[in-house]
């Protein structure tokens, strides 16, 4: 969390997550390079430099594929939420693997020219006007730049400095990077690939990413938060009978903001649904002793004043709340982050 910036705040879950990730990456590279070099590589003779480039390139592609599956899987089924927990470390590792792939390529295909290898990379093929023989390297360069932008802004400082909204918009570059990688592979190694195992695996992986995103988008359209009704300047959230002790009901306001209304110890409180850290859905967290835990990264807030427990300093906006008969209503005007609002008791 945010009590001074420490490079990485390790805990058992992060150790476990990163260990599984690193072991998987090394296992993949070992299998590709040492154990069964013929399975994924070209049937034709290739030297070690090209083989290593293909090992790291395909590894980066599969890592990116897994990263992009985590988001929609977590939206479809909250049992996948733990995979979100340390996804940024996964992304940074992917950028390093992709960079290693680029290094092997540069030091083989573009290294034996009188010009700089970096300049050679740009002018060796300039057939931009044709599909066959299109300079697919440009897609790889673009994807690598996107991954670099994401990796270099992965620290929590950037989230606070840029605001989660701007940070997330920058990190949407991962989608452009993935499409670019699909083009890089389709117009690159796939043109020469005689071994069908990689071709089929690549196509199935990319299609899984596309289908999962489509399923998650349709799921949100069907089961997403409903727009709350406005009456007398207050918005109706739900009937009190729909509320469950320790959990929230989420209402979407006309301006697109979401309010999480909690019932805890027989009293109602309302805070913003967007966590101050990465705008995770606070309304999907459980309240224990007045504290709700964000399901994405474990940030906690007191639901009565929207403040993280000391020594943490995060704050979220609160909302005034009232009970009219059995109808729970909130004031659509948010209070500044950290404003205490007296919880409204529910009559037994």
């Amino acid at each position: 969390m945010s009590v001074k910036y420490i490079p990485v705040q390790w805990n058992p879950n992060k150790w476990k997550y990163n260990t599984i990730m690193l072991v998987s990456v090394f296992a993949y590279l070992w299998i590709f390079i040492e154990l069964t070099p013929g399975i994924m590589a070209n049937e034709g003779r290739i030297n070690g430099q090209i083989h290593n480039a293909r090992a790291f390139g395909s590894c980066a592609f599969f890592m990116l594929t897994v990263i992009l599956c985590i988001g929609p899987l977590a939206r479809l089924d909250n049992r996948f939420l733990p995979l979100l927990y340390n996804r940024r470390h996964f992304g940074v590792m992917t950028a390093f693997v992709a960079l290693t792939h680029a290094g092997y390529i540069l030091n083989w295909y573009f290294a034996f020219s009188s010009s700089s290898k970096y300049e050679t990379l740009l002018f060796a093929n300039t057939s931009f006007s044709q599909v066959a023989g299109f300079p697919f390297e440009i897609f790889g360069i673009f994807a690598l730049l996107c991954l670099f932008a994401l990796a270099t802004t992965s620290h929590d400082f950037w989230l606070k400095f840029l605001t989660p909204r701007v940070w997330k918009r920058i990190h949407y570059l991962i989608y452009a990077a993935y499409i670019s990688v699909v083009a890089h592979v389709s117009f690159g190694v796939l043109q020469d690939q005689q071994n069908h195992i990689f071709t089929i695996t690549f196509m199935i992986s990319a299609l899984i990413v596309a289908v999962l995103h489509l399923m998650a988008a349709l799921h949100e359209r069907r089961h997403g938060d409903q727009m709350a009704n406005l009456s007398d300047g207050w918005v109706e959230v739900c009937d009190i009978s729909e509320m469950k002790e320790g959990f929230a009901n989420i209402a979407m306001l006309a301006n697109g903001e979401r309010v999480a209304v909690y019932l805890q110890e027989g009293k109602l409180s309302a805070i913003s649904n967007a966590c101050a850290h990465q705008n995770g859905p606070l309304g999907e967290g459980k309240v224990i002793r007045c504290l709700v835990t964000c399901p994405w990264h474990g940030f906690q807030y007191n639901v009565t004043d929207g403040r993280s427990p000391a020594p943490f300093t995060e704050k979220v906006p609160t909302y005034n709340i009232r009970l009219e008969g059995d109808v729970v209503k909130v004031d659509p005007q948010a209070n500044p982050p950290g404003t205490y609002v007296e919880p409204v008791p529910v009559k037994a």
């Binding site: 918009r169 699909v182 596309a210 995103h213 988008a217 349709l218 903001e257 913003s272 906006p317």
Partner: peptide, 24 residues
């Protein structure tokens, strides 16, 4: 401060459409 609590969630739908068209 209000802008810090407005996640751009609407983009998910258009990403899904883009992926479904562009990848195949």
């Amino acid at each position: 401060w209000l802008n810090r609590h407005k996640p751009p969630r609407e983009a998910h739908f258009w990403v899904a459409v883009l992926f479904a068209v562009a990848i195949p």
